[in-house]
Amino acid sequence: MKEAFVMVGFLEITLVIFMQWQVYLKKIVTTFSLSSYAISIFLFVDGAVLNNTNLLVLSALTAAVRGFFIPSFIRKKFRKEDYLEREIKSVVPTAMSVVLSLFFVVVGYIVYHATLYNSVGLPGGSIPIALLFQGIFLIMSRNNAFVQLIGYMVMENSLFLFGGYLFPELPLVIEGGILLDLNSSGSNRNSYDFRHYYET
């Protein structure tokens, strides 16, 4: 599974960088949905190999909430109100944001090797930490409430990858995941209200 973990992790990092330079929200949402499905498939296979129910539940949660439900909700809102589709201004210029996003991958690598590497011993273990930083940066670098929400969910995905793969026996991971998803769903509703007020 180590190779699969590194491959999925690499794919996730690439997809977040793609989201970072996109201005069309629909593409960002679709990319995020794809990235969630990739994590879900990985967790499912890992859960089946390890015979771990926690991972199977996490896989189902990831696919249902972050792969399907929240992206579908956001797309539905775009269909109704076209003006929400494109974000013209972002806090950090596009080229700089891509460079910074890559920089955070390096920071994640350094942090991981300085902390967890000796204990976990997995070379690709820095990927979820890098994703966590990229998620935070996506939130900070954009004004759009929906993109900020997606940044938060990127962090959530990284956490599932982190906790699910590196610490599959971690207690309460499912309960934590459900709460984070509830939070995302609440934020989703709130972000729509906020955008609605903001634009009208």
Binding site: L132, I136, I139, A145, Q148, L149, Y152, M155, E156, L159, L180, N183, G186, S187, N190, S191, F194, Y197, Y198
Partner: peptide, 15 residues
């Protein structure tokens, strides 16, 4: 807006 900022910032902190 305050509620939105609250959810996002606090959730990031809790992650």
């Amino acid at each position: 807006e305050a509620s939105w900022r609250y959810i996002i910032i606090v959730s990031v902190g809790l992650v």
